[in-house]
């Protein structure tokens, strides 16, 4: 999508007057739809629709060996796939660069030990642990991918059920794990402090959150912050920013992230179970 000069000016003026093209103010979010438990054979999944951005996140769990330097911790891996359904530009390997960028920012946001306690995933010190594969599928791009992906991932992790282990038998080198066969015998992960990404864009003199596809075209620079339990876990900025503006962006990002996090947790806790809707709605 490319905008002409007049359209860009229109958006710019809108942001300056705190009344954006779609009627939001600078701190406003577009409507979000969230559904969990949408992929039947995954351990946890969520689908998030932020206006026209559509993300499907799913968590699969496998048994793995912990890293030698972190014998008490499980593993988490992020994989992003930009589907060609989103835009023909993603065809073949076209979406790979963006996908890697997205996966990297998630990895770094979740790498801080205070965000998601990976010790919960340890089965046997230095021998066995759970590995979470978080797979994210971008089905439609309507701007603000970072925020949408982080929300979807958090919801999917909230929804994840880690199987319980009945007992282990250690026979020399071999470790035999007896996983509970009862499907309902599971525990949830503690995702209270899982980070939320917020993209703050600078358009003209002002900073906005949740840019639409059109607004992303007009931005001069942007900062992506990952906020977890009132702390920043990652800050990535694109384009150049003055120090003062940067702090302004960080403040705005933090404020919005805290609000967003609270709303998400409240929504997830109230989420009705076992709805059979998915894409048919």
């Amino acid at each position: 999508m490319s905008l002409c000069e007049a359209e860009k000016t229109f958006i710019l003026h809108g942001v300056a007057e705190n009344f954006r093209v779609d009627g939001r103010d600078r701190e406003g979010y577009r409507p979000i739809e969230l559904e969990t438990d949408i992929v039947q054979h995954a351990f946890g999944s969520a689908r998030l629709r932020l206006a026209s951005t559509d993300i499907l996140a799913s968590v699969k769990i496998e048994i793995d060996t912990p890293l030698p330097e972190k014998p008490f911790e499980g593993k988490i891996e992020f994989f992003v796939d930009c589907s060609a359904n989103a835009t023909p530009d993603f065809e073949g390997r076209g979406g790979e660069q963006l996908a890697i960028e997205l996966a990297n920012i998630l990895t770094s946001a979740y790498s801080a030990p205070q965000t998601l306690d990976l010790r919960e995933l340890c089965i046997l010190k230095g021998e066995k642990c759970w590995k979470l594969y978080v797979d994210i599928l971008v089905l439609e791009c309507g701007g603000n991918l970072y925020d949408a992906i982080s929300l979807a991932v958090k919801a999917a992790l909230f929804n994840t059920q880690v199987p319980k282990i009945n007992n282990m038998t250690i026979d020399g080198e071999n470790v035999d794990i007896d996983v509970s066969e009862n499907l309902l015998d599971c525990r949830r992960l503690n995702v209270k402090h899982a980070p939320i990404l917020v993209t703050v864009c600078k358009i003209g003199e002002h900073c906005i959150v949740d840019p639409s596809l059109e607004e992303e075209q007009c931005m001069m620079s942007s900062v992506v912050v990952a906020v977890s339990n009132n702390h920043f876990s990652t800050i990535t900025s694109m384009g150049s920013l003055h120090e003062e503006t940067l702090f302004e962006c960080l403040n705005l990002g933090h404020k919005v992230a805290v609000r967003l996090n609270q709303t998400l947790i409240e929504t997830l806790e109230k989420m009705p179970q076992n709805q059979d809707v998915g894409f048919l709605k």
Partner: peptide
């Protein structure tokens, strides 16, 4: 199902689920 492609559809046949988009 989607707004950006020129045409899109979702189908479920049993548990098989497929999304299609046409540009």
């Amino acid at each position: 199902v989607f707004s950006q492609p020129d045409g899109s559809a979702y189908i479920e046949q049993g548990l098989t689920k497929v999304l299609a988009a046409v540009y």
